[in-house]
């Protein structure tokens, strides 16, 4: 058992080193692989493009800091699109760590487009108990968030003049590293009929597909690849586009590892038979 354990650890070490190289090298030496835009990303882009100026979207930063490399490019791309089209953004976070990140993202991207806090965008901050928070905003956003992240009464901001609940919101965009968009679908979309757009980590994408197919979602932007596709549509390559080469090489390495693993498995099986 020890010998087997020891052997396994050695193989694991080699795999780990290979993976580190597969991710790091393409970030240093660019490959510039072409990117195809998928329909689900195009749908989101088209929807945001179709919104009239001064519409309001709710962007929820439902993630921890651990997934920032995937979440920030997703957030930046959609925020740039909204601000470029003069769409107002109300931000919030249903996970505690998303609050600081969301505030920073909003402020930074709004600054690029010279948007004014309180008029063009607002950050409401964090609310625990996400189920209750989602339901409660369906009745009255100001009741759930009487004050913004800075502690100011939200009624003082002109952006809130005609906003009471989801009826006044064009879409909810959940930037999430977990299954939070499912709660938005179950409680905000199913109950209050608001449109939901999930922007999730690649690993969560397949969870969203059934809801995408059933028409409960406007579209889907998933992972670094989704963000890179969005950046391509925006015509503004950013963080995600840079990471796509690394993702390709990492996937190829995993495919090769599966093949090598099977070759080793068959050799061992043959040896055992002999």
């Amino acid at each position: 058992m020890d010998a087997v354990g020891g052997k396994r650890i050695n193989i694991r070490h080699i795999i780990f080193i290979l993976m580190a190289l597969a991710v790091a090298l393409p970030l240093i030496f660019k490959l510039g692989l072409p990117l195809r835009v998928t329909d689900e990303v195009r749908d989101v882009y088209g929807f945001i493009d179709s919104l009239p100026e001064n519409s309001t979207v709710l962007i929820s930063f439902d993630h921890d800091t651990s997934t920032l490399p995937e979440m920030v490019p997703l957030a930046e791309a959609i925020l740039r699109h909204c601000f470029r089209n003069n769409i107002k953004v109300i931000g919030l976070a249903l996970l505690a760590e998303g609050a600081a990140v969301g505030d920073d993202n909003l402020r930074r991207i709004a600054g690029e487009y010279h948007k004014e806090y309180g008029r063009d965008y607002l950050f409401l901050g964090f609310r625990p108990q996400f189920t209750v928070a989602i339901l409660s905003m369906g009745e009255d956003i100001a009741r759930e968030f009487p004050r913004d992240y800075r502690g100011v009464d939200i009624h003082n901001y002109p952006i809130m003049n005609n906003i009471k609940n989801y009826k006044d919101i064009s879409a909810v965009i959940s930037i999430a590293d977990g299954d939070m968009p499912l709660y938005w679908i179950n409680y905000a979309q199913a109950r209050y009929g608001v449109k939901v757009i999930p922007e999730v980590t690649a690993v969560m994408a397949t969870t969203m597909y059934p809801f995408l197919q059933s028409g409960q979602l406007v579209g889907l932007v998933a992972g670094l690849k989704g963000a890179a596709e969005y950046e391509k549509l925006l015509g503004k390559p950013g963080l995600a586009s840079k990471g796509m080469d690394a993702q390709s090489t990492a996937h190829i390495l995993i495919v090769l590892l599966i093949i090598v693993g099977n070759v080793v498995y068959f050799i061992n099986r043959r040896k055992m038979r002999i």
């Binding site: 800091t65 997934t67 690993v203 590892l257």
Partner: peptide, 20 residues
């Protein structure tokens, strides 16, 4: 936190090698 998350890529690789 990001370090912990990035461990996933290593674990996915080793799990793929062993499991598939």
């Amino acid at each position: 936190q990001a370090t912990m998350f990035s461990l996933l890529s290593f674990f996915v690789a080793s799990a793929a090698y062993r499991g598939f």
